[in-house]
Amino acid sequence: MGCCCSKERLHLQDPALLASQTYFKISEIEALHVLFKKLSSSVVDDGVISKEEFQLGLLGSSKKRSLFTDRLFQLFDSKRDGVIEFGEFIRGLSVFHPAAPQAQKADFAFRLYDICQRGFIEREEVKEMICALLSESDLVLSNDIIEVVLDKTFEEADSKGDGKIDPEEWQEFVGRKPSLLRNMTIPYLKDLNTQFPSF
């Protein structure tokens, strides 16, 4: 009663329109719809992916909290309404397509790492992300070593020397070190239909 037919939200996005906006073919968008349905119904079958469902699909647990999955979720949720609709899911995944240009991947990575969303990647943010990584892994690094890593990174990336990395510096930096964008490509997205015929 009075609902906006939440399940219909799945169908509001025209696959042909999404194909024109992304690196996916219509048949691949249809295949990804199967994955979307699975994710969006894993906790509550409401046709949208909640943060809990996003984490469950990614990490196999909805209880783990992760700074990184939180940021990924926020970036996929372009309407910022707390859920990921099908169109947002497809447009977000498209950045991770092997065919997406490096500049687009770099822009996404910049926004991912700009955790305070101030338009720069600042030293404290990078330190926070390193600490987040250490807390989720068995790696142990002393504070002194972390500071050395930060010094070296900012020496290389912060060409203007103002203590923060702006979008232009970031594009230059990853242009010199494209391996930093390795996790911005999901190899599975190439030839989805042949790799995942069950989708």
């Binding site: 994955l35 992760s66 790492y113 990584l133 890593v149 070190k177 999901i186």
Partner: peptide, 29 residues
């Protein structure tokens, strides 16, 4: 681990090691 090594890992290489950033997880059951 050797403090005097000139090949210090880059902070973003380190961060990129996070499995929480690997969206392949969606495709790996």
């Amino acid at each position: 681990n050797s403090g005097s090594s000139p090949a210090i890992i880059n902070a973003f290489q380190l961060i990129g090691m996070s499995s929480c950033l690997d969206l392949s997880g969606f495709f790996e059951k």
